[in-house]
């Protein structure tokens, strides 16, 4: 109970003020480096403030004193004990060529599960369309897919890519933003123990299966390949990787058999989730450009063989990239 607050404050205040100044400096400039001496002084001031706080512990010092010292100690604690990622040190090339594919491979099981869910959805969609073709309008949310594939092919070949003339950039940016939103939703709904992610992947598969069956049944397989492959071989894997991220989140949330707390489990996957969704974003930018500026041109403007070959080459490169890139390099940092 007996503490001479006036004397205590008079002695300690210069140190608290110095700590406050240092804190303001490091907080206002994240790139600030204190140097060895500065860091040692900072640590000393932190310890001194902590000791002051400990002195007040159990004593009848007024709340304001405690709050003031707690706020100083809390801020200094955060600065001293944190190792913050330095965004300025992010090397895009290393991140793209090493971190992203390594992270993808580290969670390959979740990717395989995402593929499986999509395939099941695709089979379901195809089956529904086969059994009840009149439900096409309900299955496919896009107006241009509701009509007959043969009529659409004839119409688009006749238009020779003029349909989007003057709107290609707008169309491309709409695709990028829409697909990125779907991907983010696919990852974020992993927080519902994976239920949301599974539903989105399944629904994506349903649409894909129904479209593929619709065009194959109408004998428009070549058009379909020429139309879908150039952008689809990037766009569909991107959505699958977003689903992979969602399933990683769900697996971590469930945490079966890990023996770790939720926070500890989550800490292990933060960096991986960010890397995966960042990679997905990049893939969707590319897919959006290809879809607007390449996929919409059909024969006679662009031979289907060229479009299919382009798509196959892209797919091979993507498989090579995700499967081989970054092997033997430094393993990307986790969590």
């Amino acid at each position: 109970m007996i503490i001479d607050l006036e004397r205590f404050t008079a002695t300690e205040k210069p140190f608290w003020d110095e700590l406050e100044r240092l804190l303001k400096r490091v907080e206002n400039d994240p790139a600030c480096r204190l140097g060895v001496e500065g860091a040692a002084r900072f640590h000393y001031l932190y310890q001194r403030a902590s000791a002051g706080l400990a002195r007040l512990d159990g004593l009848a010092a007024p709340l304001e004193f405690r709050r003031y010292l707690e706020s100083l100690v809390a801020r200094a604690y955060g600065e001293i004990h944190s190792t913050r990622d330095n965004a300025h040190r992010l090397v895009p090339r290393t991140w793209l060529l090493e971190s992203f594919p390594q992270t993808f491979r580290r969670h390959i099981r979740q990717f395989q599960l995402a593929v499986l869910i999509t395939i099941v959805g695709a089979i379901f969609g195809a089956a529904i369309l086969m059994v009840a073709p009149e439900e096409k309008g309900m299955l496919l949310p896009f107006d241009h897919l509701h009509g007959s594939p043969t009529e659409r092919v004839a119409k688009e070949e006749q238009e020779a890519g003029k349909r989007l003339a003057g709107h290609k950039a707008t169309f491309s940016s709409s695709l990028m933003t829409h697909n990125t939103q779907v991907s983010i939703a696919c990852m974020a709904t992993g927080m519902t123990w994976g239920v949301g992610t599974i539903i989105l992947l399944f629904y994506n598969g349903v649409i894909l299966g129904a479209v593929v069956l619709d065009y194959l049944a109408a004998g428009q397989g070549i058009f379909l390949a020429g139309w879908l492959l150039p952008h689809g071989v990037i766009e569909i894997p991107a959505i699958l990787i977003a689903g992979q991220a969602g399933l990683v989140l769900a697996t971590t949330l469930i945490g079966k058999g890990s023996g770790l707390t939720l926070v500890a489990r989550m800490r292990k996957v933060w960096a991986d989730l960010t890397t995966l969704i960042g990679g997905v974003g990049l893939m969707l930018v590319w897919a959006g450009i290809v879809e607007a500026f390449f996929s919409q041109y059909h024969e006679p403007v662009l031979p289907y063989s060229v479009k299919i070959a382009f798509g196959v080459v892209e797919l091979c490169l993507l498989v090579l990239f995700l499967g081989r890139s970054g092997r033997g390099g430094k393993v990307a940092k986790r969590g």
């Binding site: 955060g78 944190s82 990622d85 983010i184 974020a188 926070v263 933060w270 960096a271 969704i277």
Partner: peptide, 23 residues
């Protein structure tokens, strides 16, 4: 916003908490 252990935020934490706004 702070790390729940009183530490400074990591970039990945900032990204995840903001992307999960969608849910």
């Amino acid at each position: 916003v702070m790390d729940e252990q009183g530490l400074k935020l990591q970039f990945s934490q900032v990204v995840i908490r903001n992307l999960l706004r969608i849910v």
